[in-house]
Design a binder for these strands. Structure first.
Lengths: 241, 241
DNA sequence: AAGACCGGCTTACGACGTAAGTCAGTCTTC
DNA sequence: GAAGACTGACTTACGTCGTAAGCCGGTCTT
């Protein structure tokens, strides 16, 4: 009877056999749809048509799940350009391509990127968001192939991660604003805390009030592009002098 | 008896009369010493010699507390230079001073800065870590005073926040590594998950293995300084052409 | 003296992460 | 085909969390 109540082995979702990959994939989708603090072992289990404790066979607790999510996303960034590109010898082109590779992943999962940015990497010399050994290995290899010295490759790694982190975290936060499901629509309808709303009091801040239209303009794409070019120029300068 | 058991009104800590300011201040200190997920209403109450529920008179729940913590820290950054500085007309000098003002706050509270960086600001055109109206007002005012057009002041705001965010988040994460209390030393002694340890397997990543000494070098201070100067150069270029 | 109010405490509830044990199928091995 | 181990899920239970609601002894006002 109880078994029939679940309509014989599938209820919510597809209910293909569980696996670590599936759990992590589904968790990513869950965060994309709801948010990160909505993700609990129970809710994720429910989405998979399974009890919370069943997840523990594939995941070493919630912390491990989050770690796996970050790892899965980081592993989606491509760090070696597809063969046949003209990027083969042009490091400008490579960095540009690579930057967009990371950006694509970040913008696809705006609710998860802060996690990539914030969680402690496996080693303290791994810098978010390029925090997987594979990615760093490929990144450094790509630079050395294009004529960089080891010192300079590492220097570029540092500058590049810093650039990506700042730029993408801001971009993602801004887009998340319009995307997020208003942070748990629990029950109450009235908004008490003066947060996340457009109607804040600017009377004491005349300058901000006046410049607000300017401040509100969204130039994410150009901003990214121009900052990236500025970074490349800086590196040019750095390496010729 | 129970009252005597608490030795008449103070037990742990100083137990001066509660206030919102005190609660927030003590919460900041708590996070600095332990960590952010160790901060619970109960533990913070205990630190103040008070029950958890007593905090709710001054703080609108945990979320509000975190918000207040961020606000308190952001309000510690100075955005208007002290009178009499030679910074009065030199915007290079002003930005440099301002950058260090933010950096000082970030490095004083490495465990809290990620919160400043990550939490949604009150409006989507406020960009972390310069996410308070007061700071933005003063910042823009300072730039206009030094001859910037409104468009350029706003542009500088964008570039500057992006720079600070990336640079400081990385710096803080790296320092936090050595500072943090190993993320809850709950009970288990054996480390199963391959995380936060120095002994990861680099055999498949020869390049990373070889460059590891280079990667591990810590040049936070110079890196910050040089990146800041690069940023200023970029702005120079941008505004003269 | 009386009452309002302030500032803390007590109790209670539901949700969470997760340790430990259970149990029905299925796959192996003879 | 029978026996036993393994797989992959479920059940139960515990301690901790955030927090709603009510209580109650002081002190301050009038």
């Amino acid at each position: 009877m109880a078994q029939q109540g679940e309509s014989t082995a599938e209820k919510a979702g597809t209910r293909r056999p569980l696996s670590r990959d599936l759990v992590v994939r589904e968790a990513i989708a869950f965060i994309d749809e709801r948010s990160i603090n909505q993700l609990t072992m129970r809710s994720l289990g429910a989405r998979l048509g399974v009890e919370a404790m069943s997840l523990y066979r594939y995941v070493n607790g919630r912390e491990d799940l989050l770690e796996a999510i970050v790892a899965a996303l980081v592993d989606r960034v491509e760090a070696t350009p597809p063969a046949g590109h003209e990027l083969t010898t042009d490091w400008h082109g490579y960095l540009q391509w690579m930057a967009h590779s990371v950006r694509d992943v970040a913008l696809e999962h705006p609710a998860i990127f802060p996690l990539m940015a914030t969680r402690h990497p496996a080693a303290d010399w791994l810098r978010p968001p390029l925090r997987s050994l594979r990615v760093v290995e490929e990144f450094l290899a790509a630079l050395l192939e294009r004529g960089f010295t080891e010192e300079r490759a590492v220097e570029v790694y540092r500058v590049f991660t810093s650039f990506l982190l700042g730029q993408l975290l801001l971009e993602v936060a801004q887009r998340g604003e319009s995307t997020a499901p208003v942070e748990e629509p629990l029950d109450e309808g009235g908004a008490d805390l003066p947060n996340q709303d457009e109607d804040l009091d600017l009377s004491e801040f005349p300058l901000v009030a006046r410049l607000r239209p300017l401040l509100s303009e969204d130039h994410s794409d150009e901003e990214f592009e121009r900052s990236l070019e500025a970074l490349l120029d800086r590196l040019d300068l750095l390496f010729t002098q």
